[in-house]
């Protein structure tokens, strides 16, 4: 437990030194704020778009506050996930390449403490960034579009946060596996995108997939009848997060003991 605290503080310091604590939340805040503002100005933007034939009339139903927030979550799901993956792709491989990892493991250090501290620090940064962006989006939506129900907002936010936790757990697992950070980012993004695509294509069969979490969050906000029951999705997500972290610890352990013997 002492080691965990030590490693956790070290990860936090490293994230602060590389400015991640500033730029990742800022990007999320920007993403969150942009969506309601763009929606608000959309009629005006279309009116001034040049290449429209004269007399074109575009009527758009004004989206409800919940719909705008759901669109914001969509933005987080694409650009947000990309930013998260890119910002944390080097969390294991960077240290491995610079030789810090083998230096650390010359000491009797617990692999569990080492990896879970990394996971916890990733979780902290993600939660902070998501909270920033989500709060900004809520504020602007309330100001510009309409009132929101606090309960549903929090519920949807928690659902979406769990999806992010799943993403960073997959990221940790893959970064324990692959040697270079670009490969980690690419593989993680490919996996997440395939999972999302597959789930939306075969939604009837994959109603338990963790990627349903993001859909459920949007459905809570837009008050659409959910296709899937929430229970299995929650359980499968939690289990797969646990499995990812455990496999990452296991992989780290086996690899480092091999390189120590060599």
């Amino acid at each position: 437990m002492r080691q965990f605290g030590l490693f956790y503080r070290k990860e936090m310091l490293e994230m602060a030194r590389s400015y991640k604590w500033i730029w990742v939340p800022m990007v999320f805040l920007l993403l969150g704020v942009m969506q309601p503002v763009t929606t608000y100005y959309m009629p005006e933007i279309l009116k001034h778009a040049g290449n429209m034939p004269a007399g074109t009339i575009i009527t758009m139903p004004t989206p409800t506050a919940g719909e705008v927030l759901a669109q914001t979550l969509n933005q987080f799901g694409t650009i947000g996930v990309l930013v998260l993956v890119l910002s944390m792709m080097g969390i294991v491989s960077g240290e491995r390449q610079s030789g810090v990892t083998s230096l650390i493991f010359t000491k009797p250090v617990s692999f569990i403490a080492y990896m879970t501290a990394k996971w916890a620090s990733m979780l902290t940064l993600t939660a902070a960034a998501f909270a920033c962006g989500y709060a900004g989006a809520c504020y602007y939506t309330i100001q510009l579009i309409g009132s929101l129900d606090v309960g549903t907002v929090i519920q949807a936010g928690l659902m979406y946060m769990l999806w992010f936790v799943f993403v960073i757990s997959v990221l940790l697992l893959i970064s324990a596996w692959l040697p270079n950070s670009a490969g980690v980012a690419f593989t993680t993004m490919a996996f997440i995108m395939l999972l999302s695509f597959g789930t939306s294509l075969l939604s009837r069969y994959l109603s338990w997939s963790p990627s349903r979490l993001s859909t459920i969050a949007s459905e809570i906000l837009t008050k659409v009848e959910t296709l899937s029951s929430v229970g299995p999705v929650l359980w499968i997500s939690l289990c797969s997060i646990l499995i990812c972290v455990m496999l990452a610890v296991y992989r780290m352990q086996s690899q480092e003991s091999i390189s120590a013997k060599a």
Binding site: Y19, I22, W23, M26, V27, L29, L30, V33, M34, V37
Partner: peptide, 13 residues
């Protein structure tokens, strides 16, 4: 606020 956030990002970078 949007411009301010962009400015913060730029200055940090």
């Amino acid at each position: 606020p949007i411009l301010a956030i962009q400015l913060i990002l730029m200055v940090t970078a």
